[in-house]
Design a protein around this nucleic acid. Structure first.
Length: 503
RNA sequence: GCGCCUCUAGCUCAACGGCAGAGCAACGGACUCUUAAUCCGCAGGUUCUGGGUUCGAAUCCCAGGGGGCGCACCA
């Protein structure tokens, strides 16, 4: 076998046969060992994308011969042999086009007739229209590029079983319409975010994924172990602290687009690993971040759907800047028809009990306000809102509000009832930061296993001076969900986390 | 982690206590303009797994496994 230049796929047809266990398919009878089973080429260069051909020739009259020869490659999505003629639908990632073959003008016509849905094929021929007027390639020569030994699902229904779709995404991508569009949209979103930030002078950086201490968010981490260092490390729950250390180091505008990992339950809106955009801008505050969020989201929307007004899950959604800005206290007051004062704890407590929230004694009035907001307001917000001015006690990394005691300059951007962005005027005072960390550590000691730890390296960095800065974190998967009108986060992740099969 | 629903041929689904079936795919054949091509033929099963009830279980019960949704947690 090692001397056979056609390689294993072409030289050992018997192997194909043994591996074709799925649906009982096997090579055509004509491809028995030694009797000329097709030779798979190592390359098939200089092809024209099918979408380009469709666009160039558009609508022609029936029965036209253009005189233009093209070379194309793709996957057979439908196959309609008809005696001494055969029609196939070939698709690549730019579009699809019909192949038109005939015994009188196509080399190896008999073999082409035996090709199957799912096979990869390269072909050369003239661009024509058939008698019925369909743009086609009149195949003169062709080559099998890969044999599909397994099927791609039902012709009408594709593959519907979610388990099969997510476990075998390669099948899903060919068998169903939506998934490929969703992943391409995701790519456009990421590319747009990156270009937009670079256009504003931001520099993309990469910070560690293996953290000696989890930090930058309240979440349970994944733990792993480094053998040579003989120490446990944590997969990052947020890049925040490292990015701000870069700002201390003089990187005035930084961003990172990357995966973070949180050891929490799965749901249609939560995957254990997800993509977050975080950026930090020196000399800016949280109001500047609101403007940045609006421009980033609007740019992504234009890139994917062509505008900032769209439809999500049957409801219209307008992402056009500027977005509404309201404080958390205002929104909670609106919902309950009263005025909220953070210092009026008995009032907050009675509202919470009225809303059926189990109030815990150790909660401060800030935590009470946050609970009220999350349980009674957040899910009801639809069009975008920047929810501003969070309680200090639930925001250990944000800077105290310039005029409102007990609050910090923090906002979350809520779109379609869900948190899309979390952002602050960054806390640069190392003494306040140390006190906040210590309060978190105390909560952790009291049993809150999502509370933060004291990060001495981060405090050391702050002691060298963090300039005034605004920072934001944006959930990229959720943004893609909004722009592709999908309800399940797994639809916009190529290979979502699934429970492993087997014993 | 808890609750509800679900799992039948490669795929999409019937059969719902009484012989496990259809369409598509695949395989063999016919067919010179098809479009979900059509027509003829052939083959395809641990009904997710293991127990139980019953004369008889895909169907009812119990346990386990995968998935979906909801709750909790969170972005």
């Amino acid at each position: 076998m090692s001397t056979d230049e056609t390689g294993p796929a072409g030289s050992v047809p018997g192997r194909l046969e043994r591996e074709a266990v799925g649906n009982g398919t096997s090579p055509p009878a004509g491809a028995a060992p030694g009797s000329g089973s097709p030779v798979i080429p190592y390359r098939f260069p200089d092809t024209t994308p099918l979408g380009e051909i469709v666009e160039r020739f558009g609508a022609l009259d029936p029965g036209v011969s253009t005189g233009v020869e093209v070379r194309v490659a793709g996957r057979v999505l439908a196959h309609r042999p008809q005696g001494r003629l055969a029609f196939s639908t070939l698709a690549d990632w730019t579009g699809s086009l019909q192949l038109f073959a005939g015994a009188g003008f196509t080399e190896d016509f008999g073999e082409l007739v035996r090709s199957r849905v799912g096979d990869w094929i390269g072909a050369e021929g003239e661009v024509v229209t058939t008698k019925r007027g369909e743009l086609s390639i009149r195949v003169a020569r062709w080559s099998l590029l890969a044999r599909a030994a397994r099927g791609f699902g039902d012709k009408w229904h594709g593959v519907q079983d979610p388990d099969a779709r997510y476990r075998h995404r390669e099948v899903d991508l060919w068998a169903n319409e939506g998934p490929r569009a969703a992943l391409l949209a995701r790519s456009r979103v990421v590319s747009t975010l990156r270009r937009h930030l670079e256009g504003r002078g931001f520099v993309e950086v990469e910070t560690p994924i293996l953290h000696p201490l989890p930090g930058g968010a309240t979440a349970r981490p994944f733990v792993t172990h480094h053998n040579a260092l003989r120490s446990d490390l944590y997969l990052r729950i947020a890049p925040e602290l490292y990015l701000k250390r870069l700002v201390v180091g003089g990187f005035e505008r930084v961003f990172e687009l990357g995966r973070v990992f949180r050891n929490e339950g799965l749901s249609p809106r939560h995957n254990p690993e997800f993509t977050m955009l975080e950026c930090y801008q020196a000399y800016a505050d949280y109001r500047d971040m609101m403007e940045l969020v609006e421009q980033l989201v609007a740019a992504a929307a234009v890139a994917v759907v062509g505008g900032t007004a769209l439809s999500y899950q049957g409801r219209s959604l307008d992402l056009t800047p500027p977005w509404r800005r309201a404080t958390m206290a205002e929104l909670v007051g609106e919902a309950h028809g009263c005025t909220i004062h953070l210092e009026d704890r008995p009032h907050l407590e009675s509202l919470a009990r009225g809303a059926g929230i189990p109030v815990r004694g150790e909660w401060g009035s800030g935590k009470l306000l946050l609970e009220l907001y999350e349980k009674t307001v957040e899910g009801t917000l639809w069009d975008p809102v920047h929810v501003c001015d969070y309680p200090a006690e639930v925001s250990p990394l944000a800077r105290p509000h310039r005029s409102e005691p007990g609050l910090v300059e923090r906002f979350e951007s809520i779109v379609a009832g869900r948190e899309l962005v979390n952002a602050f005027s960054e806390l640069g005072d190392p003494e306040i930061q140390r006190r906040n960390f210590e309060a978190q550590a105390a909560a952790r000691a009291a049993g809150d296993d999502e509370a933060m730890l004291v990060d001495e390296d981060y405090l050391f960095a702050l002691e060298h001076g963090l300039p005034p800065a605004g920072g934001l974190g944006l959930g990229v998967d959720r943004l893609v969900m909004l722009l592709t009108d999908t309800a399940n986060i797994r639809e916009v992740i190529a290979f979502p986390t699934l429970r492993p099969l087997g014993p």
